[in-house]
């Protein structure tokens, strides 16, 4: 009857609205470069070698200013580090260890069960050391920014000299992709910022890709398990839908 145009009309309006929204958002800022991520798509998994290189960058660069409070050292098993490696990494930092017999606070070497050590004792200390800007916690940073991994990558490679007509605030850097284009964080990564142990060439693009892969894993460590479970569940549901529909057809065959 006349129900197909109705469905089309509504679907069309919904899609149109969605496209208009996406287009409007995209026009706001510079277009993010497209990166091929190991973890995108329904079958995507984290490239563990890349995530481990990213962790190296986090250790040597990011963690000087950024905390990662939601993570424990034990979580690093998720990027394929061994128990001994994790123990060594944790032991390399000093963490608050309660109080001694005289009631004085003490420090002890970290253990796998400890949270990642934060670089600053509190937000005020972090601001004081960073020209008034607060370096955000990186635990779920990949989820907390419009554009996710693509945006974080773009931010890493988006530094340049400001356009001639732009007046910069003191202490601010120009970044093509940062909202407002003035960012307090100096360019964190350059070619050769770290020495990779696996022979990978530490170009800026490679480093950015690796550290973002690590941050994506940190934000959603369950992603691989989630997608694998999802594939099984959807296959099961498709089968169940087929069976249910067949039963429905059979039951209704004498009604129509």
């Amino acid at each position: 009857m006349r129900r197909i145009p109705l469905a089309r009309l509504i679907l069309g309006a919904a899609l149109g609205g969605l496209l208009a929204t996406t287009a409007a958002r995209a026009a706001d800022d510079a277009k993010l470069p497209k990166v091929e991520w190991s973890f995108s798509g329904p079958f995507g998994t984290y490239d563990l070698a890349s995530a481990q290189r990213g962790f190296l960058i986090y250790q040597q660069v990011c963690s000087n200013c950024h905390s990662m409070n939601q993570l424990y050292y034990r979580n690093l098993e998720g990027i394929g580090l061994t128990e001994d490696q994790i123990k060594a990494i944790a032991a390399s930092v000093q963490v608050p260890g309660g109080v001694d017999d005289n009631g004085q606070p003490i420090q002890r070497p970290g253990r796998p069960a400890d949270h990642f050590r934060a670089p600053f004792a509190n937000d005020q200390a972090a601001r004081a050391a960073n020209g008034g800007a607060l370096p955000p916690d990186q635990s779920v940073l990949e989820l907390a920014r419009e554009g996710g991994a693509d945006y974080l990558y773009a931010l890493m490679v988006g530094y340049s000299d400001p356009p001639a007509d732009m007046k910069m605030q003191p202490g601010m850097m120009y970044n093509k992709y940062f909202p407002g284009h003035q960012i307090a964080m100096p360019q964190p990564l350059q070619d050769g910022s770290v020495q990779y142990t696996d022979g990978t060439k530490p170009s800026l693009e490679q480093e950015a890709k690796d550290v973002v892969t690590f941050l994506a894993w940190a934000a959603e460590p369950e992603m691989v398990e989630r997608k694998q479970m999802g594939v099984k569940i959807i296959l099961f549901l498709l089968l169940l839908t087929g069976l249910t529909y067949a039963v429905k057809r059979k039951l209704w065959s004498d009604v129509h």
Binding site: R226, K227, G230, I233, L237, L240, T241, K248, L251
Partner: peptide, 26 residues
């Protein structure tokens, strides 16, 4: 059984859409 089975078909389709969101674009 007529509408219990017809609702069941709908529930299955509903769960597919739901699962697609939860597992692939949460």
């Amino acid at each position: 059984p007529y509408y219990t089975v017809k609702d069941s078909v709908g529930i299955c389709v509903f769960l597919i859409v739901y699962a697609a969101l939860v597992f692939f674009a949460p």
